Measured scan of single mutants.
Amino acid sequence: GGHPVTTQMVETVQNLAPNLHPEQIRYSLENTGSVEETVERYLRGDEFSFPP
């Protein structure tokens, strides 16, 4: 991942996926670069990993 992630982006995802840890959200956003894509992954039931 190398996309810039803002606190705003993390908070937006958190509102839609409250049971995800912020670190999981941030890591996913760094890989996708997209709030929409991260939320899609969540709704699909994809696994969210923590940063290594």
Rank of each mutant, 00 (worst) to 15 (best):
H21I: 04
F48N: 02
G1A: 14
N31V: 15
A17R: 01
E47F: 13
L43T: 08
E11Y: 09
Q24H: 02
A17F: 15
Q8L: 14
L16S: 08
E11R: 07
E37R: 08
P22N: 06
N19L: 12
E47V: 14
D46E: 15
R41T: 06
D46P: 01
Q14N: 07
R41D: 05
E47W: 13
V10D: 01
G45E: 03
G2V: 15
N31D: 11
V39S: 05
V39A: 05
L16D: 04
V39W: 09
P52I: 08
E30G: 06
Q14M: 14
E36G: 09
Y27K: 04
E40A: 14
R26F: 08
T12W: 15
Q8D: 12
Q24C: 05
T38F: 02
F48P: 02
S49D: 14
T7Q: 15
Q8R: 08
P52C: 07
Q8Y: 11
L43V: 09
S34W: 01
A17M: 08
G45A: 03
E37L: 13
N19D: 15
G45W: 01
Q8A: 10
T12P: 01
T7K: 12
E36T: 12
E36K: 11
T12Q: 15
E37H: 07
S34D: 07
F48M: 09
P4I: 15
E40P: 00
P52M: 09
R41A: 15
P52L: 09
H3Q: 10
S28F: 06
E40K: 14
N31R: 10
P18S: 07
Y42M: 01
N15F: 13
R26I: 12
F50L: 05
P52H: 09
N19H: 11
E37T: 08
E47P: 12
G1P: 13
T32C: 04
V5S: 03
V35H: 01
L20P: 00
V13F: 00
V10M: 14
G1I: 13
L29T: 01
S49F: 14
N15I: 14
G2C: 13
H21R: 09
S49L: 15
V5T: 06
P51G: 07
L43H: 10
R26K: 12
T32F: 05
T12N: 10
Y27H: 10
S28Q: 06
E36H: 11
V13P: 01
E23W: 09
E11V: 10
V13M: 04
G2L: 14
E37S: 08
E23F: 08
S28K: 01
V39T: 08
P52N: 08
F50V: 04
Q8V: 12
E30L: 11
L20M: 07
Q14P: 01
E30W: 11
Y27R: 02
D46C: 10
L29R: 00
G45S: 02
N15D: 10
E30V: 08
G1S: 13
E23K: 05
E36R: 12
P51N: 05
Q24L: 04
T32N: 04
G33S: 06
L20K: 00
H3A: 10
Y27G: 04
T7V: 14
V5N: 03
T12S: 13
Y42P: 03
T6F: 07
R26T: 07
H3G: 10
P51F: 07
P22Y: 12
L20E: 02
L16G: 03
T38Q: 00
T38E: 01
I25F: 00
L29N: 01
E37N: 07
P4N: 14
T7W: 15
G33R: 06
I25L: 00
R44K: 10
G1N: 13
V35F: 03
R44E: 07
G1K: 08
V5G: 03
P52E: 09
E23S: 12
R41W: 05
P22L: 11
T38Y: 00
E23V: 07
P51V: 04
Q8M: 12
V39C: 04
T12R: 15
P22T: 09
Y27P: 02
S49K: 15
Q24R: 00
F48L: 07
M9G: 01
E30D: 06
P4F: 14
P51L: 05
T12E: 14
F48Q: 01
N19I: 07
V5E: 04
L20T: 01
V10W: 05
G1Y: 13
E37G: 08
V5H: 05
G2E: 11
N19P: 05
P22W: 12
A17L: 13
I25A: 00
E30P: 00
A17Y: 08
V13K: 00
R41E: 05
T38L: 05
A17W: 05
M9A: 06
E40V: 11
F50P: 03
I25T: 00
Y27S: 03
Y42F: 10
P52Y: 08
Q8I: 11
D46R: 02
G1Q: 13
T7D: 15
T6Y: 07
T6I: 06
H3Y: 15
S49T: 13
V39G: 02
Q14C: 08
Y42N: 00
I25D: 03
P52V: 09
T7H: 14
P51R: 07
T32D: 03
Q8F: 12
T38W: 02
V5M: 04
V39M: 14
R44W: 05
G1L: 12
F50K: 01
Q24S: 03
E40D: 13
Y42A: 06
P18R: 03
T12F: 15
P18L: 07
N15K: 15
Q14W: 10
E30R: 06
L16H: 10
L16E: 05
V35N: 01
E36D: 12
E47I: 14
E23Q: 10
